[in-house]
C-alpha cells in the first residue's frame, strides 16, 4: 500500500480531547469533523483536503478511546505518521483502516506542506518535496491486511456479522 499526500505537522502529546472535543459528541459525523483541533488549531478542519496526511510528534492520540479516527476519515485524511502513537489510538487507526506508521525522526524529515510518499509494506517514507527519506519498521502484515481490507466494519459485513449500511438508515 503506497499513499501520497500533503503533510500537516503537529507537536507532542496531541490528545483525543483535541481531536474529538466532547462538544462534538452531539453532532452528526460531518459536523463533528469540523471541530477536529478546534481548540488547538481553529480553522484546520476547513483547510484540510482529501488525501492529506497528518504527521504528529510523540504519543500522538493520547487519552480516551473515542472514535477520533472516524472524524479524520470523514475529513479525508489518508494516512497518519508520528514519532510515536498512544497505543489505543493506534488500534483505532488500524481498525478504521487509516494507515499509520510510527517512526523516530519524522518531524525532522517533514515540514508542513511537504509532499510525502509512504510505502506501508516496506516502511519507506519519502519526502518528495526535499528528496529525503526515512525507513520505518513496516506495519506488520496482519495489521496491514486489516487496513487493506477496509477495516473492521468491512470485514464484519463481509463475514455476515453485520447488515450492510442502508443509506440514511441511522441518521
Amino acid at each position: 500500500m503506497v499513499i501520497e499526500g500533503r503533510a500537516w505537522t503537529f507537536g507532542n502529546d496531541v490528545s483525543t480531547d483535541l481531536l474529538y472535543p466532547q462538544v462534538a459528541y452531539s453532532l452528526p459525523l460531518e459536523e463533528a469533523a469540523q471541530l477536529v483541533f478546534s481548540a488547538s488549531r481553529p480553522g484546520w478542519s476547513q483547510q484540510v483536503e482529501r488525501g492529506d496526511i497528518i504527521v504528529g510528534g510523540t504519543n500522538f492520540g493520547m487519552g480516551s478511546s473515542r472514535p477520533a479516527v472516524a472524524l479524520l476519515r470523514e475529513l479525508g485524511i489518508a494516512a497518519n505518521l508520528a514519532e510515536s502513537f498512544a497505543n489505543l489510538y493506534f488500534r483505532n487507526c488500524v481498525n478504521y483502516a487509516l494507515p499509520a506508521l510510527a517512526l523516530n525522526g519524522i518531524l525532522q524529515l517533514v515540514s508542513e506542506g511537504d509532499s510525502l510518499r509512504i510505502d506501508f509494506s516496506s516502511g519507506l517514507v519519502e519526502n518528495v518535496t526535499t528528496g529525503e527519506a526515512l525507513r520505518a519498521e513496516p506495519l506488520p502484515e496482519a495489521l496491514l491486511a486489516i487496513v487493506e481490507s477496509g477495516g473492521v466494519l468491512a470485514s464484519l459485513e463481509a463475514e455476515g456479522y453485520l447488515p450492510p449500511i442502508q443509506t440514511g438508515a441511522n441518521e
Binding site: 478511546s65 489505543l88 488500534r91 481498525n95 464484519l156 453485520l162
Partner: peptide
C-alpha cells in the same frame, strides 16, 4: 484488561 475503540468493540461483540 484494557480499553479498545468502540469500532473494535463491535468486532468483539460479533466474533
Amino acid at each position: 484488561a484494557r480499553g479498545v475503540g468502540s469500532l473494535e468493540m463491535i468486532q468483539i461483540i460479533c466474533t
